[in-house]
């Protein structure tokens, strides 16, 4: 029988611990497929964050480091400076990347650290049970914004790609989502470019994935994707916010 669909080599055989319908699994797969296609698993070092994907070190088959909450870009910097020939990526949630780790994020980006950042924006703190994130939408109900996010008291959500796109060190800042086959394909292409940039020594690349947290949004997986389309995408438009090497874009390989 012909094999038509396989687990990427860069994923271990550990079963994901994510909730049913959580897009973390899709994004893990896209990262692993990319690592396979570029043939870089043997020299890749991944960094898992504090958040739902904290145990990503069990799922990716490359060498892995688990970082403190928000510090993944600093840990990645240390690894990359020690081993410039290795491929280093971080995988971070919105609380990790844009709240507690914003300083590390901005400075890794402005230094043009030659790393790849996969950023999961699900507008909520998943792991701790659904508190407000820096990306929680105005009016969005969470455990810590029970009356909806009041921007007068809690401020406005942060658009990370837009913010980072002003920095000279950034090679690629692109926002994608994985709510449909078409979007999954685009996300894959973007993630692949973010890794290729690193292989080519282009500097900091970030792919923001607009994601969902059905569990803490209190929705079924399919309702969550509808909510994502109706609410997240208008506030977080998909697209390329910075591409310092556009001539290398498009469908390579």
């Amino acid at each position: 029988m012909a094999v038509v669909f396989e687990r990427p080599h860069a994923l271990t055989d550990k079963v994901f611990s994510y909730c049913p319908g959580c897009p973390h699994g899709i994004v893990h797969r896209l990262v692993a497929e990319t690592i396979d296609e570029l043939g870089i698993e043997d020299r890749t070092i991944g960094i898992s964050p504090v958040g739902c994907s904290v145990t990503a070190y069990d799922f990716f088959a490359c060498d892995m480091v688990e970082a403190a909450h928000g510090r993944a870009p600093a840990v990645a910097t240390g690894i990359k400076r020690a081993r410039p020939d290795n491929i280093v990526f971080t995988y971070q949630g919105d609380g990790d990347l844009a709240a507690i780790g914003m300083a590390e994020t901005v400075h890794a980006a402005t230094r043009g650290e030659n790393i790849t950042v996969i950023f999961i924006n699900n507008a909520i703190y998943g792991m701790t049970g659904g508190q407000m994130a820096p990306t929680t939408l105005p009016g969005q109900i969470t455990q810590t914004t029970p009356y909806g996010r009041d921007v007068k008291a809690a401020g406005y959500p942060i658009r990370v790609c837009e913010l980072l796109s002003t920095l000279d060190g950034v090679a690629l800042a692109q926002r994608v989502t994985v709510d449909s086959v078409k979007h999954v394909r685009e996300a894959k292409k973007a993630i692949k470019r973010a890794f290729e940039n690193q292989v080519n020594g282009r500097g900091y690349s970030i792919i923001e994935v607009v994601s969902a947290c059905p569990t803490n949004w209190g929705l079924t997986p399919s309702e969550a994707l509808c909510w994502l389309r109706d609410n997240m995408l208008p506030y977080y438009p998909l697209g390329v916010y910075k591409d310092a090497y556009p001539e290398e874009g498009g469908a390579k390989k």
């Binding site: 480091v65 970082a67 510090r71 600093a74 840990v75 240390g78 020690a82």
Partner: peptide, 20 residues
């Protein structure tokens, strides 16, 4: 490397030490 804070610098040390 002049880091953005001591939080960052120690975690850079952690990364480099992890890399051996």
């Amino acid at each position: 490397l002049q880091a953005e804070s001591e939080l960052a610098s120690i975690n850079m040390v952690l990364g480099a030490a992890a890399a051996g």
